[in-house]
Design a protein around this nucleic acid. Structure first.
Lengths: 204, 204
DNA sequence: GTCTATAACTCGATAGAC
DNA sequence: GTCTATCGAGTTATAGAC
């Protein structure tokens, strides 16, 4: 009983420390020693609970991405207006990146290394359903409420504007002369600015 | 004479092999062994021509990126209308990515590993001058020809929409159901669509 | 369960033969 | 100039004491 309790407790501490380190340094950059230091215990223990570094990472990754993807899938088929969909989408996307700054670049790297397998993994074998979104868009266009635009171009624009700044953050900070705080505020602002930018462009 | 010829020849072979490997795996992920294998010779030779891995990387890097950045810097301060600037910028950016499909992700990875040094390297110590662009934008806003928008948000939007699709290509291809050809055509289309999308959004 | 010590491995770099 | 063999630093993983 006592062992079980301790076990669980330590396991959680490891996961918390590992998440912090993995997010800060990425899978390749993270050292098992860093994780041990972060939790104030020793390396060997990590291997006792999670056989390999790979395995430990896998657990963290699945937990982080596992919550986010279903949310996005659900949003695409939700029963709300196109305008709200765009607003919620940008908000969720940017918030996720703010909470997990290292994740986007990591995902893109894995994606490019093993496209098919990786897509299968993150979407759990079921790609998001775009029919509803496409249909909504077509309806708005037919009703002359928005200008003609393909769902492909619209989705590309929306996702790009939300995520790319996080990946290229050091460059933006340097070129645009932002510090950490200003960057954070800029991205906070973009939760509203991107939907507005998009809607200003497509609305008639 | 013979040695000199051989020397140059081998050096070029090394550079070609190294470029391939570095771009595919990044500085940290690349192995000297991989490069040696790629050119069908042995590791020690690499160190004979380029003392360290770092040095070899440096040469490749400068050659690859060295052509593109000055073009962009020049464009920002060019004496053309804001509208044309946006059009040319998107065109150049997308064309570069089409010609070097692996370069964007490579650059972003290196950027995130060693932000300060990397920025110094790619901009050769001199950051792009945004004053002219900012001034032009302000003029247009004052003249009520375009809606208020900060240069930061505008540049972020523009760069994001041009580059991100190349980095996330496998995901877009899967989710949006595109094949290689359709993707290429989509990006070709975006050379015109992105400027239009931006201008539709900000023009009054 | 947790620790210390160390084995096992990876990889950049060098020595030295040809 | 090119090769084989090996060193040495850094890191993951394991053995074994407590």
């Amino acid at each position: 009983m006592k062992e079980k309790r301790k076990n669980t407790n330590t396991e959680e501490k490891i996961l918390a420390a590992a998440k912090k380190v993995f997010i800060a340094k990425g899978m390749a950059g993270a050292r098992m020693q860093d994780i041990a230091d972060e939790m104030g215990m020793n390396k060997a223990l990590l291997h006792y609970y999670f056989k390999t570094k790979e395995q430990l990472f896998e657990v963290i990754f699945k937990e982080t991405i596992g919550k986010f993807i279903p949310k996005l899938k659900a949003l695409l088929i939700a029963d709300i207006s196109l305008e709200d969909k765009i607003k919620f989408f940008c908000n969720e996307y940017i918030q996720m990146a703010q909470d997990n700054p290292y994740l986007p670049l990591f995902i893109l790297n894995e994606l490019n290394k093993q496209p098919a397998q990786f897509i299968d993994k993150i979407f759990s074998g079921e790609l998001p359903d775009l029919n509803k979104f496409t249909f909504q868009l077509e309806q708005e266009i037919k009703a002359k409420r928005i200008k003609p635009i393909s769902p492909v171009q619209l989705l590309m624009n929306m996702m790009s504007m939300c995520i790319f700044p996080f990946i290229a953050k050091p460059m933006f900070n340097a070129v645009l002369g932002l510090d950490e705080l200003q960057f954070r505020l800029t991205m906070e602002q973009r939760k509203k600015d991107i939907p507005k930018f998009i809607l200003d462009s497509i609305k008639k």
